[in-house]
Design a protein around this nucleic acid. Sequence first.
RNA 1: GUGGCCUUAGUGUAGUGGUAACACAACAGAUUGUGAUUCUGUUAUUAGGGGUUCAAUUCCCCUAGGCCACCCCA
Length: 415
Amino acid sequence: MKYSIPRGTKDILPADSPLWQKLEAICRHVFGAYNYHEIRTPVFEKTELFTRSIGNTTDIVKKEMYEFKDRKGRSLCLRPEETAPVVRAGLENGLIRPDQVTKLYYIGPMFRYERPQAGRQRQFHQAGVEVFGSADPLIDAEVILMNVQLFEALGLMDLEVNMNSVGCPKCRPEFRQQLKAYFKDNISKMCDDCRDRFEHNPLRILDCKEAKCQKFINSAPASVDTLCADCKTHFEEVIKMLDYQEAKVVVNKRLVRGLDYYNRTTFEVVAKSLGAQNAISGGGRYDDLVAELGGKPTPAVGFAIGIERVIEVLKKSEIALAQQPKVKIFFAALGDEARKLAFDLVIGYRERFINADMDYLGKSLKSQLKLADKLGAEKVIILGEDELKKGYGIIKDMKTSKQEEVKLDSLAEVM
RNA sequence: GUGGCCUUAGUGUAGUGGUAACACAACAGAUUGUGAUUCUGUUAUUAGGGGUUCAAUUCCCCUAGGCCACCCCA
């Protein structure tokens, strides 16, 4: 094959696209019910937007960005995530204001230069929401509940919703210190990755999967125990609201999120059926990002779902696969005269938005009927030279195989 | 970026150091204008490049891609 698809990307073929459409429609439906409005931003942005927001030390920025220079030498990046672009767009267009609540959602492709694997591609799709302007725990709860409702609406089962609080710039340094103090003595006995994390990002040690590290991690201090008074109250309020709504959310003290901008509430939903890359959505609060990107200090919360991963779960669980549209009426014509008439009639049906089709290859009647059958046609109109001469066509019901003769001028009204 | 497995017709799979098999799909036909069945036929120089050999699809190396895991993340 001379041309093949770039590594880590996938074509979404007609067999799958109805499922995508269904998923997107349900996202819009649920987000709409919570009064979120769609925003669409460019797939590329100035590189600096991402280095500022996501954090210079994260893998995303260090080695996963599709960066390029345009013809004027400006450094641009294919977006690896959409929170920063939404903040940028919201600020630039006056949508985000400290004194009002703004609710936005987006659906679209993201790009990260990673080694492909199950549930991980270089171009993948996310649907996400962002709320700006409120620090109220109700908003944290609302966003989590909306996420849960979305998955329920899709019929997903065996999900686990984890949440945690990572504190704020006031109390997180304290937690970091405690962690480093705790691991200091034993870090030499832990894995290479953890030793690296100890230096650069001690919080990440908490979700290491190595057995030899686990025994030390188990009794490590938890972020929720070192929260400052404000963060603690906030966290408790969120939990209270979720309990009140009977949401099945589990507090997971080990949950750490990768992006630098998160503070206080973080959460993620994992699907047990998926394998290593099993997080199907993730998000949290990021109260300092808007100011970091040049706006007035404005609290915010958001999350994103990984569409490919959700699609995988949907396929595995055999949840009602959406159907391709089927042909309602098919015209089998023989001879130039008849084909011309058939074309005229087909167009007429289509103008009324009735799915109609015909043969374009000059096939035999037998082949045309075979095709009609394959397309799932309900009715076939047979137009042969003999019929044409006599001024009628044959209408055949493909289910019952019954045929009847119908006058040509009433063929436009069969369906 | 690291590691393991893999790469044969449209799809899914056999197989052997001597010039490729099966299933499904697709297309065509079965006395010439009627669909799901049945029968027949048609459809591949075995990912690309290099090497070993009289000879490679089968052995070795490289490249590309796929799958899976680590890292990380949705």
